[in-house]
Design a binder for these strands. Sequence first.
DNA 1: TTTTGCATGGGAATCGTTCTAGTTTACACT
DNA 2: AGTGTAAACTAGAACGATTCCCATGCAAAA
Lengths: 156, 156
Amino acid sequence: MSDSADLKKAGLKATLPRLKILGILEEPRVRHMTAEDVYKALLDMGEEVGLATVYRVLTQFESAGLVIRHNFEGGRSVFEINQGGHHDHVVCVECGEVFEFYDPAIEERQRRVAETLGFHVDSHSLYMYGSCLGMKREGRCSKKAATGTVEAAQSE
Amino acid sequence: MSDSADLKKAGLKATLPRLKILGILEEPRVRHMTAEDVYKALLDMGEEVGLATVYRVLTQFESAGLVIRHNFEGGRSVFEINQGGHHDHVVCVECGEVFEFYDPAIEERQRRVAETLGFHVDSHSLYMYGSCLGMKREGRCSKKAATGTVEAAQSE
DNA sequence: TTTTGCATGGGAATCGTTCTAGTTTACACT
DNA sequence: AGTGTAAACTAGAACGATTCCCATGCAAAA
């Protein structure tokens, strides 16, 4: 589906800034960006978009469910396009790289804990912080902002 | 052990501001506080402590392992005294209440995911956001800043 | 085409947090 | 107990991230 249609479905007019920002977030190489990152990417493309607009649009996208906002360590928000499948994050504090994973067993346990507490869960997040030295050896780390995805083994 | 001895063991001089802040964090009723909360509590006690000192001391305590810093939704840091046992958090976005739980199965799965990735984990956090309507019924919600702890069932 | 209203851009304002400068304090050693 | 020195303190300025404000722009409705 076109970005334009995505926006309209979310109740947002398909304006140029919104289309550009959505386009940037959809580039597969840069799944996790700060508002500043998005702003710089726009400038690099020669677009005249204000930083305030970037923040406003990202917040609107979040409300509309188009993007997910993360509160990683360090205080600044990181945005990622929402492509449906929930996943958790592993963040390398040395190179800034972010890996994703999904573990059905963890999800199920979380669901059950909430149920036990009688708590209605709107959203949940799981972050692991550390260093990807082991991954470096395999040549996956050190290229800043790259992203990998891992599907955890299902059972046992 | 006395707070003063705790501080010295952590390599920190036992100054008045540090003792007061540690004392506040140790009060069982208020496990999760922002720097601002701690500052206000000090003012209420009639103490003359600067906000900058509160931030500096909390950061020192974090480095020393005396407190844990959380990055909940909303961007501001929340501090909690570190009493040894790791646990995860359930945050009610309506009343601000924070509940804690520990689920060994989740911890084990996380450990395994990191292992699979060859990732060295320094810290990890799991937050669930939502509403505690169900808990309200049992009279546990609505008293702002109160905290409950739940031990998740072990197996199955 | 005029109206109406949401969207934008730029700069000022705000918020949480950290830094700076000068002053005070804790603590080891008389 | 008295004192020197490094560490810690306070207040306020500075800072980075984010939001607000408002005059202008633009696009759908009348």
